[in-house]
Nucleic acid binder design. Structure first.
Lengths: 105, 105
DNA sequence: TGTAATACATCGTAACACGAGGTATTGCGC
DNA sequence: GCGCAATACCTCGTGTTACGATGTATTACA
């Protein structure tokens, strides 16, 4: 998938991945795999960004002797998803513009 | 509209705007206005990029004593639009992922 | 013993949209 | 005739971003 096209979707995907249940880095990547591929470096950048924007909170926990950082969505994070849903209408109208501009002959 | 979300759409919008008839900078902006707002600096950056990628060709012409640069789409440019249409399926599947993850209770 | 999987992290780079600023002409109101 | 909006082009610097490369450490299994 085109990198530029992913840009507006990744933040919302990550937020969606933790929306119903707190999750952690490795699991988020696996859960999103069927929809979008993202590398670890990309994910950790996103998580840092979303934390700075107060769209999620972090909690460290030990699991089987291994560190895990669980991410929990905030109200602002939920709002970000809602904003995306509203913007979706605009995206669809752009898509229709692109497909309707066919030469009908 | 969120800048990041626009990123994957702008190139295709510009290509669509010149697809059926050659067009020029100022007109492209006005034609796209109902769908996406883009500034002149953004458009000229895009046009340069698409030209470098051989997705369009340029032809200068004088119109009412004023210079106009007409942009014409190439086969590669048409291919870019087709690629977008195919990627659209992935985008829709992401959208469905986002909206389906509602807590049903 | 080694190798994949799990789990975290940082750094540098290239791509990109945009605001701010610039040049020059036409056309209209006053 | 003067100013200003509209038309039409352009450049530069900046901040945001996705990603590959790279690093650390543990568990599980062949």
């Amino acid at each position: 998938m085109d990198i530029q096209l992913k840009r507006g979707l990744l933040d919302v995907c990550v937020l969606t991945a933790i929306k119903n249940d707190d999750s952690y880095g490795y699991k988020i990547i696996k859960d999103l795999k069927p929809y979008v591929e993202l590398s670890e470096s990309t994910l950790y950048t996103i998580l840092k960004r979303l934390e700075a924007a107060k769209m999620l909170t972090v909690r460290s926990a030990e699991h089987d002797g291994r560190l895990r950082k669980y991410y929990h969505i905030t109200q602002a994070g939920v709002g970000r998803i809602e904003d995306f849903k509203n913007e979706w209408k605009e995206v669809v109208s752009i898509y229709h513009f692109v497909i309707k501009e066919e030469r009908h002959e």
